[in-house]
Each structure stands twice: as structure tokens, then as C-alpha cells.
């Protein structure tokens, strides 16, 4: 039986587009910074559900980086640190959860 995988994006190239925007890939790297655009798109995907942890973590980390670079948080260092911390903790914990899930899948096979 075919394995169906539900994704919040319709076509894989949408995901690759987000990747290009975040990591500014390739020769045709956009002259304008599209990271904000990519982060917002991932936020929208998140509402639909089934967003992989790695995608979500990337968005959170990049969002914190953008906040920092843009001198965000109303100039408060504390809020930038809080944003970084939250994003970072979530990223680490979710990477671990993915590992757990993988190990579980292995033992159930």
C-alpha cells in the first residue's frame, strides 16, 4: 500500500523555495533578503499542521536572528535574549524528540 505523507505545502518546490530564501542559496540568490518572507510562510504552514520539527525550528531560530539583526524587541536586550532562548530550547528539545520517535519506530519495526 502506498505510504501517504501529509504536508502543509502543496508542492515540494514550495519547501525548496523556503530553503533558498532562508539559506540564500545558489547563483540566483535573491538580492533582497527574503528570510522574513520564508519565516512567515512557515508560520502559516504551522497553522495547517504537520510541519516537520526541523522546519519549525529553523523558522523560530531565524525569526530570533531577524529580531536581533533588526535591533528588535523595542531595543530591549532581554526580549531578544528571551526570543533566542525560546527558539533554541525548542530546537534542541524537538531534535531529541525526533530522535526518540526514530528509535521508537526502529523498535516497533
Amino acid at each position: 500500500m502506498p505510504q501517504y505523507k501529509i504536508t502543509p505545502w502543496k508542492y515540494t518546490h514550495e519547501l525548496l523555495q523556503v530553503r533558498r530564501e532562508i539559506y540564500r542559496l545558489g547563483e540566483a540568490a535573491p538580492p533582497v533578503d527574503l528570510r522574513r518572507n520564508a519565516v512567515d510562510k512557515i508560520a502559516a504552514w504551522k497553522m495547517r499542521g504537520h510541519t516537520p520539527h526541523a522546519v519549525e525550528s529553523t523558522a523560530l531560530l531565524v525569526d530570533a536572528i531577524l529580531l536581533h539583526e533588526g535591533g528588535g524587541g523595542g531595543g530591549s536586550q532581554l526580549s531578544v535574549r528571551a526570543a533566542y532562548s525560546a527558539a533554541f530550547c525548542r530546537y534542541v528539545v524537538e531534535a531529541m524528540q525526533d530522535l526518540h520517535a526514530e528509535l521508537d519506530a526502529d523498535t516497533h519495526d
Binding site: L61, A64, I65, Q77, L78, R81, S85, F88
Partner: peptide, 11 residues
């Protein structure tokens, strides 16, 4: 909360 510099680097 860790310092801003460390957080930025690790992010």
C-alpha cells in the same frame, strides 16, 4: 538567560 552573544552564536 545566557548572554546575547552566546545565544546569537549558537542560534
Amino acid at each position: 538567560l545566557p548572554s546575547l552573544q552566546r545565544l546569537a552564536r549558537n542560534a
